[in-house]
């Protein structure tokens, strides 16, 4: 996994609350045994009409949102099932950053493990972004180093992220390899407690 530091991309707004992972990637696509190729199924039931053609009204299908790589979402994004296929699909579609007032816990973790940056911020900032993305193509620059989101060089807001997850994301580290360096601690724990 490669690290993220500064990223610039087009933002798209999805002003819906409690978007669950069943919507992000419906169950019929969970049977694959790979991590790749899920982007084509992202938001499948919302994105496509019954005949398989794109629903022209769905946020991601609007021509001005083509090529978006930053998703601005609403409260409790990614709730429900723990399926990691959700961030795999978002990432494969092209999303690198998701901004929302809050995320479901498991989804948040699943994003971190896959190099997708989830930014939790105030509803106030999210509202502003919804407005901005509606008006014109909205390019944002996200800096994990500075913990800021900028538009045209101006800081829109700064955000918080646990320093450990930030470090892991910035460096694209293999978490298992890091944990394995603590083998002595694990052994000691097992000797005493098991």
């Amino acid at each position: 996994m490669s690290g993220i530091n500064v990223f610039t991309g087009k933002a798209v707004g999805m002003d819906r609350v409690n978007v669950d992972t069943d919507q992000i990637i419906p169950k019929q696509f969970l049977k694959r045994i790979e991590k790749t190729g899920f982007g084509q199924f992202l938001f499948y039931d919302w994105r496509f009409l019954k005949d398989g053609s794109p629903d022209p009204k769905f946020e991601l299908n609007l021509p001005e949102n083509e090529g978006a790589s930053i998703l601005v979402a609403n409260e409790n994004f990614g709730c429900g099932s723990s399926r990691e296929h959700a961030p795999w699909a978002l990432q494969d579609y092209g999303f690198k950053v998701i901004i929302a007032p809050s995320f479901a816990d498991i989804f948040y973790q699943n994003c971190l493990k896959n190099g997708v940056l989830p930014i939790a911020t105030d509803q106030f900032h999210v509202r502003r972004l919804f407005k901005k993305t509606k008006q014109q193509p909205c390019m944002l620059t996200v800096s994990l180093e500075e913990k800021t989101v900028k538009s045209e060089g101006n800081i829109l807001f700064s955000f918080d992220i646990h320093p450990h997850w930030r470090m892991m994301l910035m460096n694209g580290l293999d978490e298992i390899a890091l944990t394995m360096q603590l083998e002595d601690d694990i052994k000691k724990f097992e000797a005493v407690s098991r």
Partner: peptide, 19 residues
């Protein structure tokens, strides 16, 4: 519940990083 990356982490180390 955990995601698949964490499943792999537990399989390999029997531990998880948790806040």
């Amino acid at each position: 519940g955990i995601g698949t990356s964490e499943v792999e982490h537990v399989l390999a180390t029997q531990t998880l990083w948790q806040t």
